[in-house]
Design a protein around this nucleic acid. Structure first.
Ligand SMILES: [Mn+2]
Ligand SMILES: [Mn+2]
Ligand SMILES: [Zn+2]
Ligand SMILES: [Zn+2]
Lengths: 140, 140
DNA sequence: GCTACTGGTGATACGTAGTATCAATATATG
DNA sequence: CATATATTGATACTACGTATCACCAGTAGC
């Protein structure tokens, strides 16, 4: 897990590079995110930060997701879930039962997806692979 | 594209096999779906069927999606889009600009995803692969 | 450290998507 | 045709996300 101060520094850098200001609310959101394990909804963050306005929570999450600090996964119904992005490219294992989101990587998969991207007409911007499953925990 | 009467028959079968009734509203929704090319939102169907209640439109779309008549894809923001499912397994090419959804198949991809599914802990229920791109049309 | 400029905040309101309710209606079946 | 019950759809409700905008606070220049 990322240390709080290390994420603080990373967020400071990103804000500076984007010409945005370092503010107390943004820091509070970032700190709470750093303490999270696994994926979470924007609403859950909002609920845990009553002293920060809802609009600001959503704006900050969007900002950090676009900056690459957060990674966004979609549950089967389309609900977004966010998690700290560790920079390396990965995909998601999503438990349909408890909605846990785990990371997943496969170099062989990336190689093939890259090849396919070259064959696809148009300009491929990215890809997303999700495995829907019942996680070991939910299998009892 | 599937002929209207052929879809009618398929929907009749499915309703019967599920013990559900064949009703005029369900037929209207199914007929409209059969006339659609590409992917559409539930709201767009509702807008084109003022004589059918909104709840019924949503219920019918969900029913048909669960029965495998419709296939559900998620735009990058999580908005669901539906299209007639042609039974063969496929994935999606989603244009981030015009939100068009195209089908995509690769036996090599399926083979690899199958292998990976066996290695993943838990019981894999399915997978989803989306390529996000700018389609040839939107590249001008 | 001030000041002014400007980006950020958050209460509020709004829009959309989807679902729960439930009285009225339509369908399947004998 | 009569009955049992699945279905409908008007209404209301919830959740999520964003637009507004008066007020506030971070930042750069002095
Ligand atoms: Mn991730
Ligand atoms: Mn499809
Ligand atoms: Zn689980
Ligand atoms: Zn396009």
């Amino acid at each position: 897990m990322m240390a709080t101060d290390s994420l603080d520094a990373r967020v400071d850098e990103i804000l500076k590079s984007l010409g945005r200001r370092t503010t107390a609310p943004r820091r509070q959101v970032a700190r709470l995110l750093a303490s999270k394990r696994g994926a979470f909804s924007a609403e859950s963050i909002n609920a845990e930060l009553p002293e920060v306005g809802r609009a600001t929570v959503y704006r900050t999450i969007r900002l950090l997701a676009e900056a690459g600090v957060l990674c966004k996964a979609l549950l089967p119904d389309g609900s977004p879930r966010y998690s700290i992005d560790h920079s390396w490219h990965h995909h998601h294992l999503i438990c349909s039962s408890c909605e846990t989101v785990e990371e997943f990587r496969s170099s062989e998969l990336e190689r093939l997806l890259g090849e396919l991207s070259d064959e696809i007409p148009g300009q491929v911007l990215g890809h997303q692979v999700d495995f829907y499953l019942t996680c070991p925990n939910c299998l009892q």
